[in-house]
Design a protein around this nucleic acid. Structure first.
Lengths: 144, 144
DNA sequence: TAACATTGATTGATATCGTCAATTATTGAC
DNA sequence: GTCAATAATTGACGATATCAATCAATGTTA
């Protein structure tokens, strides 16, 4: 085992690079749908719950500044993929939910991404993939 | 085990978020040195080999467009942390190498990052960390 | 050797992303 | 009823990603 790279041990560096590999693949897979990776993520969260998700929660889930969520939802709403309604229980919040068209596009996007990325982890044992998934989830969402 | 998040299974999403956690930590750790994460990475690679690294190679290692490397090296050179000399064997290439000051700053940066990130993986078994490292390396540098 | 394609570095343009400060509307607490 | 806290929004600015075009040097080939 050689480690000529000084950053080969640097987990942050490796995560960033690995993330880039996936992001690039996903980006190309989504491009025909007119979606970016970010937009797709928002759409996916908005598709999950019938009643919708607040933008505050979206920012939290995605690790974004709330102001970025505004722009993302603006765009998706403009394309008719999500709707944004004031939460009747708290009129400060807006509930973002997918339209039927949004739900359809989200599914299509999910399929495309899965297909495009299927090769990346092909050499990795399934149980290792499961372990990796659990590890990252614990790291990203420690409270859940 | 509940997975309320639609993207909880999405490895690309998790990698991106995890990468963000590390990047933010590293960024704060490096800020007192006047370095960004990217600059530090370039400096680290430039510190590794006495003779220096070509910018082409830097772009490849870091997954960047060559034009981004130009700006990064410009900045580091301006701060006296690296030097850039024409490769005598191929006058198209520039060899980037760390100055003595650059080597010192790189060490200091490495220490700061390690300290700042020590807590993040504290709950993860050492052998799992090793496995994760190997997995990501294989994914990012499949040919090495 | 002269013509041509390729490569490495560079510049510039454009779109996206990250971070912060400030504002407005609404809610909660005292 | 006043005041602090919260959710969304806008605007600004620097950082990042991507791409096209240029220039100098090298490699290829007729």
């Amino acid at each position: 085992m050689h480690d000529e790279h000084p950053l080969a041990q640097d987990l942050g560096f490796l995560l960033s690079r690995a993330s880039g590999v996936f992001a690039k693949t996903a980006s190309e897979a989504l491009s025909p749908l007119g979606l970016r990776v970010r937009s797709y993520s928002v759409l996916a969260f908005a598709s999950e719950v019938e009643t919708g998700v607040t933008q505050r929660r979206l920012a939290e889930l995605m690790g974004l500044d709330p102001s970025q969520v505004v722009a993302l939802v603006d765009e998706l709403e403009g394309n008719g993929l999500v709707r944004r309604v004031t939460d009747p229980n708290d009129r400060r919040s807006k509930l973002v939910s997918a339209t039927s068209e949004g739900t359809r596009v989200r599914s299509e996007g999910g399929r495309r991404i899965a297909e495009a990325q299927s090769g990346i982890m092909a050499d990795v044992k399934p149980e290792t993939q499961v372990e990796l998934n659990a590890l990252l989830r614990q790291l990203v969402f420690p409270d859940e």
